[in-house]
Deep mutational scan, measured.
Amino acid sequence: IRVTEDENDEPIEIPSEDDGTVLLSTVTAQFPGACGLRYRNPVSQCMRGVRLVEGILHAPDAGWGNLVYVVN
């Protein structure tokens, strides 16, 4: 998935696990201090948080898609 520190920055590609999840530790390896991800909902244009359970980030209902995710 494509992740950036700010919406206007160049994104970095972060690998997902075989089950489609992303480990928070993978994100923090590239973005120290990150505690989660958010993205701009293409329909509402509002920022939406990615579900985080026990250090594992779960894809939105429509999958990770071609969105750019921003670190929290």
Rank of each mutant, 00 (worst) to 15 (best):
L24G: 04
L57P: 02
E13V: 09
T28H: 07
I14K: 00
T21W: 03
M47W: 13
L57T: 00
P15M: 14
D61N: 14
R2H: 05
S25H: 06
S44F: 07
E54K: 12
E54R: 12
V22W: 02
Q45E: 11
V68Y: 01
I56P: 01
N41I: 08
M47Q: 09
P15T: 13
P32N: 05
P15I: 09
P42C: 07
E17K: 06
G20T: 05
L37V: 02
Y39W: 09
T28Y: 07
V71L: 04
G63H: 01
D6I: 06
A59M: 07
T21N: 12
P60M: 05
I1R: 01
V50R: 00
T4N: 03
P15H: 11
Q30I: 09
N72A: 10
C46Q: 15
G55R: 05
N72D: 15
T28I: 15
N8K: 11
G49C: 15
L52W: 01
Y39F: 10
T28E: 12
D18P: 13
R2P: 07
N8M: 10
G65I: 03
P60W: 03
N8L: 11
T26Q: 12
L52I: 13
Y69A: 02
P42A: 08
V71P: 05
Y69C: 02
C35S: 14
V3A: 02
E10C: 13
C35L: 13
D9N: 13
V22M: 05
A62R: 12
E13D: 15
G33T: 11
V43T: 15
V43Q: 11
Q45D: 06
T28C: 15
S25P: 02
P15N: 14
R38P: 03
V27M: 00
T4R: 08
T21R: 06
L57R: 02
A34F: 00
G33S: 09
A62D: 15
P32Q: 05
T4E: 04
N41S: 15
D9S: 11
D6K: 10
I14N: 11
Y39D: 01
V68W: 03
A29W: 06
L67S: 11
S25F: 04
L57K: 00
E17N: 12
N8Q: 09
P42R: 09
G65F: 04
D18R: 13
D18G: 13
S16C: 11
E5M: 11
S44M: 09
V27E: 00
T4H: 08
M47V: 12
Q45H: 08
V27P: 03
E13L: 13
I1A: 10
P11Y: 09
A59T: 06
C46M: 13
R48G: 11
L57A: 01
D9G: 11
V43P: 01
W64M: 02
R38W: 15
V27R: 00
P11G: 10
I12N: 02
G55C: 02
L24C: 03
R51T: 15
Y69L: 01
Q30E: 11
V53M: 09
L57D: 01
V27T: 00
I12Q: 09
D18A: 14
L37A: 00
Q45R: 12
N72Y: 11
S25T: 10
D61S: 13
I12L: 12
